[in-house]
Write a protein that binds this DNA or RNA. Structure first.
Lengths: 370, 370
DNA sequence: TTGGTCTGAGAATACGTATTCTCATGGAAT
DNA sequence: ATTCCATGAGAATACGTATTCTCAGACCAA
């Protein structure tokens, strides 16, 4: 006999709580709670009775109430700056999958890179009691960093390093990737190599550029020019036109990411009537899905979005659990994917296309009329 | 003198509650609550004192606790099936913005179109007490529909109609769009027109196809063929090859969305060595950002993602508020954007390019070394 | 048989806020 | 001056669950 008997269900109809289940199963509310938090300290037969009652009533635990008392919402906030770059769409998908597998949910917000806007968004997430935050491609103000520290909310920077070594970050090996791009172009015999770079106020952009310059230096080369194009299609296109204004024209361009590389290629082809890779070789960074499309067939450095998402998730969960991870700055190697947008040096081979199982299964259903 | 004085703050350090604020301001906890829910029934000077105390302590209301008692989480769930189609990336961004402006937050989940998986994802969201759900491009099982009805959780289908007229949906005018595609191609003098269609188990796909067929019929034409290509790039490519196997080849193809149209164009160009639009005209549906890229310069029907997102948000909020909206099936007109991937009939003009203000501001910073 | 440990489940409480209830105060109306 | 209502704020309670505390009974050893 429980105290629930005297409480008529006064809440919204259809809203069934652990008390209702308890009443029907003839047990106390804590017992119901124990069953649903898989607390071992409940006898098998009682547990069965509770589960049956729950099923009959269609009970599902209210995660808000649970979160309120445990202090953990099992929600993590995801802040994104760009969504026109498809790399981040892939990132969302992989992060969502990875975190879901770990029992977490994602709250997404788009914020421009203005520090002020990011701050507001993050504050909002804090109010929602997120357990942790992933900031993809957004910069952090020092004020914000401090506030998150105070609030003891762990966060991970995804694809955006930061000078501050105490911040947890997951990136690809940007310096190394930039260097390998340079080596590849140098091996291809290019000598007038320009860089349409990522935003130089982001560490990603700087590291790729620094690696690229180092790679050129390894081969006794200097860049023809480097132009900060802010990860923007339009600016990258303008930069490309700029590069070809003078008489000393590039024979190769390394772009700070694929998104800009596409703009570079199109400006070369359709604006300047040049041939890629005949006249100019182009190399990108990311290997988004479109990079393998025949229109671009872009040679690029693959950032493994899935592995990066896995790493970021694991890292963040560790931080939430209070475990100091072995490393809080994770760099994933990026692989050079050789396609046809850049001259292939002797001895190098085109990367084989990944076989797509769906393609074989593609048996479209056709109907010829009549 | 309040009862708070006797309660030492025993919760996690840094966790400041309305009780703490109350104690410091010398008022009761309900008064603090009233100030932060902008309840008018609190005198100005007290309110000021409370706000000051809150600022000094860095207090921010716990939205979980608030939600628990109000029964409204101000969170809405967003379920997506595809993210490789950039239309949905745009949709996320616009939905996020629109709902944020209305004071809501978004919980995102990717679910394949398997009914079972969608059900699980939605159940999960219900547990999280979302106030409403937007299902983008995913189908609903009848069981799920019923359960959401029972749980009294409103939902809106975004870009995916449903036969059941009682379900709230926001789509573009798919039938009309399909018909206009047909009219355009017919006006261009094409006679052997094929359709690489969207998934025929989705109403979107069927409506576009039906409109397309009606539009051909308006011109006394019949389709050369229609092939269900499931919104898949690979299947669309296979379908295109299939269409060109025989001797009676299409002179125009209408694709069920841009994502497939790109695959069609590339298969024509790089697989079949045909010219677009010289040999074959191609029309798409969506007008994603890439459609305006010079590589494709795709003639297509623009689904205004922003307006659709606004409508879906408004509709859902109305449903949550319990107001029966005037219409629960919203169709947004889609505009034909004439570019160069399809022959332009006499008398028609290419749609002017939207002027991009950023392009003018693009003054890349260059540095020539040395 | 008695004492002690262990097990399982109910009672009580906590989480942080919103809301209802209650009541003191003060001004207006008579 | 007395009654009445409006106003504003504190006391009490609720939201739905997890957790701590408590205790009855079972079981074993002596």
């Amino acid at each position: 006999m429980t105290s629930d008997r005297s409480d008529p269900p006064r809440s919204a109809p259809g809203r069934v709580t652990s008390h209702d289940v308890a009443a029907r199963a003839g047990v106390s509310q804590p017992t119901v709670s124990r069953v649903f938090s898989s607390d071992p300290k409940v006898s098998p037969d009682l547990a069965k009775r509770v589960r049956r009652a729950a099923d009959e009533l269609g009970y599902r635990p209210n995660r808000l109430a649970r979160s309120l008392i445990t202090g953990r919402s099992r929600t993590i906030g995801l802040v994104l700056a760009y969504l026109d770059n498809p790399f981040y769409a892939e990132a969302i998908a992989h992060l969502s999958t990875a975190l879901e597998a770990r029992g977490y949910h994602i709250m997404v917000r788009i914020a421009s890179n203005l520090a002020e806007e990011v701050d507001g968004v993050v504050d909002d997430m804090v109010d929602h009691q997120v357990d942790g935050i992933i900031l993809a491609s957004v910069s952090m103000s020092n004020a914000l960093t401090g506030r998150l520290r105070d609030a003891k909310i762990p966060f991970v920077l995804f694809n955006r390093g930061q000078e501050d070594l105490s911040l947890a970050t997951v990136t690809s090996a940007n310096f190394d990737g930039g260097r390998r791009a340079a080596h590849f172009l140098a091996a291809g015999g290019h000598t007038r190599i320009a860089h349409v770079s990522g935003w130089q106020k982001s560490l990603n952009g700087r590291d790729r550029q620094a690696g690229f310059l180092a790679g050129l230096a390894d081969n006794g080369l200097e860049p023809l020019d480097t132009i900060d194009s802010h990860y923007s299609r339009d600016i990258a296109a303008a930069a490309t036109r700029e590069l070809f204004k003078g008489s000393f024209r590039p024979d190769a361009i390394f772009a700070g990411n694929d998104h800009m590389a596409f703009a570079v290629i199109e400006t070369l082809r359709y604006g300047l009537k040049l041939n890629v890779p005949g006249d100019v070789s182009v190399v990108g960074y990311d290997d988004v899905a479109m990079a393998s499309w025949p229109s671009f067939d872009l040679t690029t450095l693959r950032q493994p979005a899935r592995r990066m998402a896995e790493s970021a998730s694991t890292l963040l969960i560790d931080l939430i659990a209070g475990q100091a991870p072995d490393r809080n700055r994770i760099e994933i190697d990026s692989e050079l994917i050789v396609r046809s947008s850049a001259r292939i040096p002797p001895g190098w081979k085109r990367s084989h296309k990944p076989d797509n199982p769906r393609q074989k299964a593609a048996t479209p259903t056709s109907r010829r009329p009549k």
